[in-house]
């Protein structure tokens, strides 16, 4: 998957959650990507993150770091947020 496209999509998600309650911004981004992105898309953006992750907005980067850690069995599970859209 093209990293440019994935970065663009992730930042789009970030722009929505950036203006929500501050305690839901990063978990909101992380949850959205976890719930709606196919694993290969997540894997591709994690790889891009490992290469420096240029262009990722700060909260998006933070959310992806958390997700990656969770995927690798390191971090805590991404908490649920009040955004339960499907």
């Amino acid at each position: 998957m093209s990293p440019d496209r994935l970065v663009y999509m992730a930042n789009q998600i970030g722009k929505f959650f950036e203006v929500q309650r501050s305690d839901e911004t990063v978990p909101g981004i992380a949850n959205h990507i976890k719930k709606f992105w196919d694993p290969r898309m997540r894997k591709a953006i994690f790889a891009y993150l490992d290469e420096g992750g240029d262009g990722l907005d700060p909260p998006v980067r933070e959310a992806l770091e958390q997700l990656k850690a969770e995927a690798q069995g390191r971090g805590r599970p991404t908490p649920e947020t009040s955004f339960q859209g499907t």
Binding site: M1, S2, R5, K35, F36, W37, D38, R40, M41
Partner: peptide
């Protein structure tokens, strides 16, 4: 989750 249509085409 699986791929959405546009993701399928990208993939």
């Amino acid at each position: 989750p699986g791929l959405r249509i546009p993701n399928m085409i990208d993939a």
